[in-house]
Every structure is written in C-alpha cells, then in structure tokens.
C-alpha cells in the first residue's frame, strides 16, 4: 500500500539535541517509518510511514520519550 504522511505537534523540544534524538530514536521503536523530519522552530514532526506504523503509535512513542506530541487536526 502507499506510504502515508502525518505532521505531529511536538511540545517540549528546546534544543537541536532533542530534534536529533527524536529523528534517531523513533524509527527504532516504530516499525514502518520511512522518513521523519523534526522542526525545532515549528515544534513539529513530519513523518512518512507505512503499516504497521500508525499516527497513534507515533504519538505514543514520542510521548514515551517525554515530549508532548499531538495530532494536528
């Protein structure tokens, strides 16, 4: 099936280390992530993914890191 895209709001990021950590860690805990681009300025994470990954899994994984993610409606 075709890959899907989602942009999440991510609160709690204050420096580039947080950005690098999320971009490095999420693909290792959520299967099916093709691409993840985190923007410190906008406080967002843009993710390209395929099953079994789901937006909810991405939110949970970032929440487990101690940040404050939410789906952009």
């Amino acid at each position: 099936d075709l890959p899907d895209e989602v942009t999440l709001n991510v609160g709690g990021m204050t420096c580039q280390t947080c950005v690098d950590k999320i971009e490095k860690h999420i693909p290792t805990v959520v299967e099916g992530v093709f691409k993840i681009k985190v923007s410190l300025e906008e406080g967002t994470a843009f993710v390209v993914f395929k099953s079994p990954a789901t937006p909810e899994q991405l939110v949970d994984a970032i929440d487990d890191m101690g940040f404050d993610p939410s789906l952009r409606r």
């Binding site: 709690g12 420096c15 280390t17 947080c18 890191m65 101690g66 940040f67």
Partner: peptide
C-alpha cells in the same frame, strides 16, 4: 542527559508512569 530538556523528558516520563 545533555541539556535541561533531557532532564524534563526523564522527569515527565517517570511522573507519567
């Protein structure tokens, strides 16, 4: 932990659990 926000992350995760 490299900066203040790492400390906050750990605290938030421990509080949540």
């Amino acid at each position: 932990m490299t900066c203040g926000s790492c400390e906050n992350c750990v605290k938030k995760v421990l509080e949540k659990n």
